[in-house]
Every structure is written in structure tokens, then in C-alpha cells.
């Protein structure tokens, strides 16, 4: 059963890498089970593809398994075969039961961080001129209103950030504001967490609805200050 053991070893290695190596890289975090499962599936299918490329390698891999399942005169393995044939359906049944049974654990969730904005916010552009003065003013507003959560360094690590799940966005990450247009930020700041559509799970975000406190002009200035401070630039079409 050489190839089968190889497959198992390969999966164990992949599992160890996902579970213990990647999370310990600086700046990393543990991987969710769904992702680990995905990588293990890829490993397994890769192995299956390679093992069945030629008649010989397929025989080396599949032959022993087939003989174990259907061959005659396998001696003591007969009992193991019956064990497998009984256990496997039970395993499938158990899995199915586990997936469908009512449990008290909250379901896995998939919150869309950047859902589509409402139509009326997609085409706006800032009425405030991009002058050093305005940017500086925006940074001032940012320090006053935003930095407690989003951090003075625009990294999402303000003094109040730790209390929130999901945590405040990290603007210095190139996958956040750098992917979005200014009008998108305008919508998010103005309408806050409760303004999110259902796929953004408005009940989770603690972002305030700033439209009740700040005039539009201040929000536009904050956006300019934010991009400048985080050393990112907004998505544009120019």
C-alpha cells in the first residue's frame, strides 16, 4: 500500500503546514477550517491525478485498494474489509447527521466586507478641492472622530478597537481603501454600520452613522486625510 501511505503522509504534511506553520508566520493568524479543508482537497486531488497518469502508477495505487475491497483469499484482512464496509456508511451518516442536527454553536458566517453601495452613492465625487490645507483639516477631523477606533496610524488599532468584532478596518492594508473609490468611503462613513445591505450584516458593525454628526464637507475632507495618511490612493478611472 505504498502510494496510499504516501497520500496520507502528504495530507498530514499539508495539514501541519496549514495548522502550525502558516499561523506562526509573523503577522499571520490561524486558518479557518473551511480553508484548511480546501487546501487538503487540492492536495488529495493533485495526488490522485498524478497517481493515475500511467497504467503502472495507477495499478500501484489502486490495485491494493481494489484487492482489499473485492479480491479473494485476503486472509485476516477479511475482517478489516467488513469493518470498513460497515464503518464507511456509518461515517457518512454521522457526517450528515452532524451537518443537519440543531446545535447551539452559532453558524459559520460569511460577512461581505465590501458590499455593493446603493446606486445613489456610486457616482459621486468630492466637491472639496484637494489642497494641502483641506487634507490637513481632514487629518484633524480624522484624529478627532475616527482615530479612537481606526488608530492614529490608520492601521485599525486605535485604543477602542479591541472591543469590537469585526474589528475596525485597517486602512494601510492594500486590500481595503485602496480597492475602493472615494464615493464608496463617503457612503460607508455617512451611513455607518446600519446602512450596510444584508450581506454586509448591518447588525454586526459598530461604525456610527456619521451623517447625524458631521456635515458632508467634513466627511469628504476626512476621506482625503485618510488616503493621504495611510499612503494609499483611491480607485479612479483616470
Amino acid at each position: 500500500m505504498g502510494p496510499l501511505i504516501k497520500l496520507i503522509i502528504l495530507n498530514v504534511i499539508a495539514y501541519v503546514i496549514c495548522k502550525f506553520v502558516v499561523p506562526n508566520v509573523p503577522g499571520s493568524a490561524p486558518l479557518p477550517a473551511s480553508l484548511v479543508f480546501l487546501y487538503l482537497m487540492l492536495t488529495t486531488s493533485g495526488f490522485l491525478i498524478f497517481a493515475t497518469l500511467s497504467a503502472e502508477s495507477k495499478e500501484a495505487f489502486w490495485g491494493p485498494i481494489q484487492r482489499f475491497l473485492t479480491g479473494e483469499n485476503i486472509g485476516g484482512l477479511q475482517a478489516v474489509r467488513y469493518g470498513v464496509l460497515i464503518l464507511f456508511p456509518l461515517l457518512v451518516g454521522w457526517q450528515t447527521y452532524n451537518n443537519t442536527a440543531v446545535s447551539d454553536a452559532p453558524p459559520s458566517e460569511n460577512r461581505t466586507i465590501h458590499p455593493a453601495p446603493p446606486g445613489e452613492y456610486t457616482g459621486l465625487s468630492s466637491p472639496v478641492a484637494k489642497t494641502p490645507d483641506n487634507i490637513q483639516q481632514g487629518k484633524g477631523f480624522y484624529a478627532a472622530f475616527c482615530s479612537p477606533c481606526h488608530g492614529g496610524n490608520f492601521d485599525g488599532k486605535g485604543p477602542a478597537a479591541r472591543g469590537f468584532n469585526p474589528p475596525p478596518a485597517n486602512f494601510s492594508d492594500p486590500t481595503t481603501i485602496a480597492m475602493l473609490q472615494e464615493s464608496y468611503l463617503f457612503w460607508r462613513i455617512k451611513k455607518g454600520g446600519v446602512g450596510l445591505p444584508i450581506e454586509g450584516m448591518p447588525w454586526k458593525s459598530a461604525m456610527p452613522r456619521w451623517e447625524v454628526e458631521l456635515p458632508d464637507e467634513w466627511i469628504w475632507k476626512i476621506i482625503m486625510g485618510e488616503y493621504d495618511g495611510a499612503h494609499q490612493s483611491p480607485r479612479t478611472w483616470e
Binding site: 493568524a29 466586507i113 486590500t175
Partner: peptide, 30 residues
């Protein structure tokens, strides 16, 4: 394929999401 199939917002339980600090992974999120 592994890179292509890694989503930006991951499916995660509450516990896992808390450890990652949100629904995207700090390293694999890229």
C-alpha cells in the same frame, strides 16, 4: 488554483473569525 480559490471574505465560525481579527485572513487575505 489554491491561490485562485482562496476567498477574500472567508467562511469562518465566530471563534475563528475572532482569532483572524475579522472575516479576512491577515496573511492569506492578499
Amino acid at each position: 488554483l489554491g491561490v485562485w480559490m482562496t476567498p477574500h471574505s472567508l467562511v469562518a465560525s465566530m471563534e475563528e473569525a475572532r482569532k483572524m481579527g475579522g472575516s479576512h485572513h491577515p496573511l492569506l487575505g492578499v
